[in-house]
């Protein structure tokens, strides 16, 4: 029928294609920034105070839970307020990132099936969206720390490293979960309920100190370390060595495993959607 040139071009390896996806995707800043911004605008399109809703609802939650749980847990008022405000804001950031990652590809079906675009773009969209929300909520932390200042501020100098390590972790989690949930849809629900349960099991509302002899319950929980690496410097402490080690090691190993998985299944994602 048609003469086909028989020379077969060498197929690039799947790992190389995966790296290309990540690099091209990350470089397409204007795409994911625009998408993320659109998502934020979208949420508040018909509301009068707009994105401030995020801040207000978080503020109300802190204000309402503070006195009650401070009394229940027998904590001094000022330091508990500090603790609760930073904890809730950081927790909502981490859990938002994890829960959103589950639907990153599924929600982008329209784009994935229509235009050839690096898949990384759809993940960065969600990550940036949550960073913007975190920025809004951070106002509350700033406000609370203004009224109840921590013992020292110089610990905040480690925050850039803390944030880098946290994002290193949240990004592999995003790649891993988005790939898995596209294939196995019920993981989304599983993750959502695990995160709901984890809110109570992780020192968010309560402090690790109350555990006295059974501190391992917190130490064995990776989410505790993700929290602590940001929370401690904000409250005037340095994160414990264990936290630095755990977050770094899990970040690196998580990426190694995730990379293999993503390289292996990247090309299947459009078929699974």
């Amino acid at each position: 029928m048609i003469a086909i040139n028989s020379s077969v071009p060498s197929r690039p390896s799947q790992s190389r294609l995966a790296i290309k996806d990540m690099i091209d995707g990350s470089l397409g800043t204007s795409i994911w920034l625009q998408f993320a911004w659109q998502d934020i605008k979208q949420r508040y399109r018909r509301s009068i105070i707009g994105p401030l809703w995020i801040t207000i609802s978080m503020g109300v939650m802190v204000g309402a839970m503070g006195p009650l749980y401070g009394t229940l847990l027998n904590q001094p008022k000022g330091s508990y307020f500090q603790y609760l405000a930073t904890s809730l804001v950081i927790w909502s950031f981490i859990s938002g990132q994890i829960v959103d990652a589950c639907t990153a590809f599924i929600a982008a079906e329209g784009f994935i099936k229509e235009v050839k675009m690096p898949l990384t773009v759809h993940l960065l969209r969600g990550i940036v969206k949550n960073i913007i929300i975190f920025g809004h909520n951070f106002l509350i932390v700033a406000l609370v720390l203004l009224f109840y200042p921590p013992a020292q501020f110089k610990t905040m100098l480690v925050l850039p490293i803390s944030l880098f390590l946290l994002m290193l972790n949240l990004s592999w989690i995003a790649f891993l979960l988005s790939t898995l949930t596209t294939r196995f849809r019920d993981i989304t629900q599983t993750v959502a309920s695990i995160m709901q349960m984890a809110f109570f099991l992780t020192p968010v509302v309560w402090n690790r100190n109350v555990l006295t002899d059974s501190g391992w319950v917190a130490d064995a929980n990776i989410l505790f370390h993700y929290m602590e690496i940001i929370r401690a410097p904000l409250l005037g402490h340095y994160p414990p060595t264990l936290t630095w080690v755990v977050v770094s090691v899990v970040g690196v190993f998580g990426w190694v495993i995730t990379f293999f998985l993503f390289a292996r299944f990247r090309s299947r994602i459009p078929y699974w959607i």
Binding site: S30, R45, K113
Partner: peptide, 23 residues
């Protein structure tokens, strides 16, 4: 392929043009 894929009905026409342009 399907020109309606990926349009955001809540966004304005102008915003959709910009988004599509980026894509």
């Amino acid at each position: 392929l399907d020109i309606f894929h990926g349009t955001d009905l809540e966004a304005t026409g102008l915003e959709n043009i910009y988004m599509r342009g980026r894509v």
